Structures are given as structure tokens and as C-alpha cells.
Simulated scan of single mutants.
Amino acid sequence: MSSKPVLWFLFPFLFNLVVAAVAPFVVDGAQGVATAVGMGVVPLGAGSALLKGRKEGQHAA
């Protein structure tokens, strides 16, 4: 998981996670909350899929 292709693949998801954390403080009201939720779903889903795939790969080995 620490190879360069994996790290470059994870960079956009980490960027989305940072934007999701900052959005409610920068954008006011419901738009900030909606931006945070929308941008936060992508990296959380990708992270859970990577961890799930990693656990399944360990059982096969």
C-alpha cells in the first residue's frame, strides 16, 4: 500500500477529505454542509474499499 502508484491514486481522495473538513468553515449554511457531505463520501468510500480489499487479499494468501 506504500508503493508510488497507490500513493498517487490516494492523493485525490485525501484532497477531497481535506476539502470536506474545511468546507463548513468557509462556505456558510446548508451549502457548506452539503459540500462537506458530498466531498466526504468519496474518500470514505474509497478508503473502506481499499481496506476491505486488503483484508480479503490477506485471507487468500
Score class of each variant (00 low, 15 high):
5 P>V: 04
5 P>I: 01
5 P>M: 03
5 P>N: 03
5 P>W: 02
5 P>F: 02
6 V>R: 13
6 V>K: 07
6 V>N: 12
6 V>F: 14
6 V>P: 07
6 V>A: 15
7 L>S: 01
7 L>T: 02
8 W>H: 06
8 W>A: 11
8 W>L: 15
8 W>I: 04
9 F>G: 06
9 F>Y: 13
9 F>W: 05
10 L>T: 00
10 L>F: 03
10 L>Q: 06
10 L>Y: 01
10 L>A: 12
11 F>N: 02
11 F>Q: 05
12 P>D: 04
12 P>G: 03
12 P>F: 08
13 F>Q: 04
14 L>K: 00
14 L>W: 04
14 L>C: 10
14 L>V: 08
15 F>Q: 11
15 F>E: 09
16 N>H: 09
16 N>D: 11
16 N>Q: 11
17 L>M: 09
18 V>G: 08
18 V>I: 13
18 V>H: 04
18 V>W: 06
19 V>R: 09
19 V>C: 13
22 V>W: 05
22 V>A: 10
22 V>D: 03
23 A>F: 00
23 A>Y: 00
24 P>C: 10
25 F>M: 12
25 F>G: 12
25 F>A: 14
26 V>T: 13
26 V>F: 10
27 V>H: 03
27 V>N: 11
28 D>C: 09
28 D>N: 05
28 D>K: 07
29 G>A: 10
29 G>L: 14
29 G>W: 05
30 A>F: 09
31 Q>N: 09
31 Q>C: 04
31 Q>E: 10
32 G>V: 07
33 V>S: 12
33 V>I: 15
33 V>N: 13
34 A>K: 07
34 A>M: 15
34 A>F: 03
34 A>Y: 09
35 T>G: 06
36 A>W: 01
36 A>F: 03
38 G>Y: 11
38 G>F: 12
39 M>T: 09
39 M>H: 06
40 G>W: 11
40 G>Y: 02
40 G>I: 06
40 G>S: 11
41 V>Q: 11
42 V>I: 12
42 V>C: 08
42 V>E: 12
42 V>D: 08
43 P>T: 05
44 L>D: 03
45 G>K: 03
45 G>A: 15
45 G>C: 15
45 G>H: 09
46 A>K: 00
46 A>S: 10
46 A>H: 03
47 G>Q: 01
47 G>V: 07
47 G>S: 12
48 S>F: 10
49 A>P: 00
50 L>T: 00
50 L>G: 04
50 L>W: 04
51 L>I: 07
52 K>M: 14
52 K>Y: 13
52 K>F: 13
52 K>D: 14
53 G>R: 12
53 G>D: 14
54 R>I: 02
55 K>V: 11
55 K>H: 06
56 E>Q: 07
56 E>M: 06
56 E>C: 02
57 G>S: 09
57 G>E: 14
57 G>H: 08
57 G>I: 03
58 Q>P: 02
